[in-house]
Design a protein around this nucleic acid. Structure first.
Lengths: 227, 227
DNA sequence: TGACAAAGTAACCATTTCGTACAATCGTGA
DNA sequence: TCACGATTGTACGAAATGGTTACTTTGTCA
């Protein structure tokens, strides 16, 4: 959609490309907020990092909080889009759960910016999430998918009874999130680099193993690895 | 020790009590940093919150970063003291692991300030942890304790082989940490209040269950609750 | 082609914010 | 009691920061 706008602009002979400017500001701002936090990021620095000027930031986003909110909304819209594109209905419950956990882990690991943005937002008590129209309107499908997988697993007799989908989600999220969010302090204190390829791979397997062991009935053999 | 100093000061007729002033600043600063982050916290606001003046902050801590570092060191020293006071050697491996997990979960839940401070430090890439002499000198016993428990469990044949103590630690920490760190966004997005008494209690049980299921061999019956 | 809106620039302003200079006070040992 | 270092209060300054104003350029369409 970004490229469409640019292509259109170029095709019609336009030199101006508002959408590109907007996007450019958004990206630069995201890097800044994610790197220094809301108060730590400097509007002047962000402006300097864009292809345009400070005036444009205010032109498009109103003020600093508006810019931050736009970055936040963009991030949440993105992950929701991914969630909705998933179709795990074809997979058997155990395989579906394995896939969902792995994908969640990977998404966090591959998108540290998202993780850090959520950290920043939590530091601010989710104040901006509260007031965002756009995010409020998003229906988060993660829980629904889990609920479905869990129900199917119960029916098949491969999952234990008595687990709340939200609990399952919290477990998967926690194990995926922490790995990115606390990378710096863990490395500093324990000398363990969670970002390293090997460590990450092993951790991914452990997380999946942890989730399956929590949910599955004892009989199931879950030892084979997934792609 | 705070009270000792004050008692001594009062007893000897001192009106000045540097240690109390220091401590008072530290506490006020912690609240501020934890609530607004490093850049978001205002020195003037912190000063206003103390029983003394801004001048004293600079007198004792040099600058804003020095104050922040002192707050961070204080927090880490505290948790380390708690860790070292634990004695789980008397407990059987499974009980020891159950206790350690429960205590870790409780410590995080009861000390949100610590959790938020670690979040802030991670946002800043653990830059201050790196340069802190005092924290560098702390030997973190958490891993050693886990290593010991795990070794005993292996010997007794109640734990599975092939698990790394660091992995175990990451799992326990993640499940304890996330519950506090992401309270705001979870509540906002899923309407689930993790701070609520009931939710917290249930979550605690689930976390312990999760850890035990990960580590224990299938035969063991782990269904009874702990205090 | 020229009026008008959208997009963009550069210089500027009012506050806030960290940090300091200077002087005063306190506690203690000689 | 007095000298001297530790401690504390007041007022102030320089730089940074968020935000704005006045003005130019670009593109559309009657």
């Amino acid at each position: 959609m970004r490229d469409d706008a640019q292509a259109e602009a170029v095709a019609s002979g336009w030199k101006q490309d508002p959408d590109a400017v907007r996007q450019n500001i958004l990206e630069t701002a995201r890097r800044a907020f994610v790197d220094k936090g809301l108060s730590g990021a400097r509007i002047d620095a962000i402006a300097a990092g864009t292809a345009t000027s400070k005036r444009m930031i205010y032109y498009y986003f109103g003020d600093k909080e508006g810019l931050y909110r736009a970055v936040l909304e963009d991030a949440y819209t993105r992950i929701r889009r991914l969630e909705q594109s998933l179709d795990l209905a074809a997979l058997a419950p155990i395989e579906a759960l394995r896939a969902l956990t792995g994908l969640t882990f990977d998404y966090h690991a591959n998108n540290p910016d998202f993780v850090r943005l959520v950290m920043v937002e939590n530091i601010h008590h989710a104040r901006h999430l509260k007031t965002s129209q756009r995010i409020g309107a998003l229906n988060h499908t993660a829980i629904d998918m889990l609920r479905d997988i869990y129900a199917r697993g119960l029916e098949d007799g491969v999952f234990r009874a008595g687990i709340e989908p939200i609990d399952l989600h919290l477990t998967i999220s926690a194990l995926s999130f922490y790995n990115v969010s606390n990378q710096s302090t863990i490395k500093q204190i324990f000398g363990h680099d969670m970002a390293h390829q090997n460590a990450r791979g092993r951790r991914r397997a452990t997380v999946i193993e942890t989730v399956l062991r929590l949910v599955c009935v004892a009989e199931a053999d879950r030892s084979e690895a997934d792609g």
